[in-house]
């Protein structure tokens, strides 16, 4: 029995030393014991929608909110023109991620396009930066308006 107790102490020592290696110590504290995603922190946010917000963040809230804005603007079949991420960054929009049309469809069930997507001519609204570094929805009413936007966006490479 003494030998087994000695081996148990060796096991405990090995675990202690292992998690004292700086990298593993950091991993344990910042990842494994990450308070932000522990059960005790999120136990009151267990609905499906709350869990989506917790994972996808601010951008997801904006995209979901667009559904209400579409109703307000009376856009029945919205086709959203997505600006390139680099364009948004250049206009100092912080904390907002421009997703791909496929991800946008996954999150909202609505259609979005990029400047080089098939069917871009059907775009009837666009996400643009406002003066406060936030995003705002604008309606596209004419082909001329769309062409102007496309000519601006085409200057930026799309990040895939």
């Amino acid at each position: 029995m003494h030998f087994k107790i000695n081996l148990t102490l060796i096991a405990l020592l090995a675990i202690f030393l292992f998690f004292n290696i700086p990298f593993y110590n950091n991993w344990l504290n910042t990842n494994i014991f990450n308070q932000q995603i522990s059960y005790f922190t999120v136990k009151d946010q267990l609905s499906i929608e709350q869990r989506r917000v917790a994972r996808y963040g601010y951008s997801y809230v904006i995209y979901k909110e667009l559904n209400n804005v579409f109703k307000k603007f009376k856009i029945d079949s919205p086709v959203l023109l997505l600006p390139p991420e680099r364009y948004m960054k250049e206009n100092r929009v912080a904390g907002f991620n421009v997703v791909e049309p496929m991800v946008y469809y996954y999150l909202t069930g609505n259609i979005a396009v990029w400047y080089d997507s098939p069917g871009v001519e059907k775009a009837n609204c666009v996400l643009m930066p406002d003066r406060n570094g936030k995003v705002a929805l604008q309606k596209i009413d004419t082909k001329q308006q769309l062409d102007t936007l496309l000519s601006i966006f085409k200057k930026y490479k799309l990040d895939l």
Binding site: I37, V42, L46, I48, R51, R52, A54, R55, Y56, E100, M102, V103, Y105, Y106
Partner: peptide, 15 residues
Amino acid sequence: YFPPTPRDVLTGVEL
């Protein structure tokens, strides 16, 4: 707890 996240699945199999 968390929904699927990787871009590779959201733009493919999960979608």
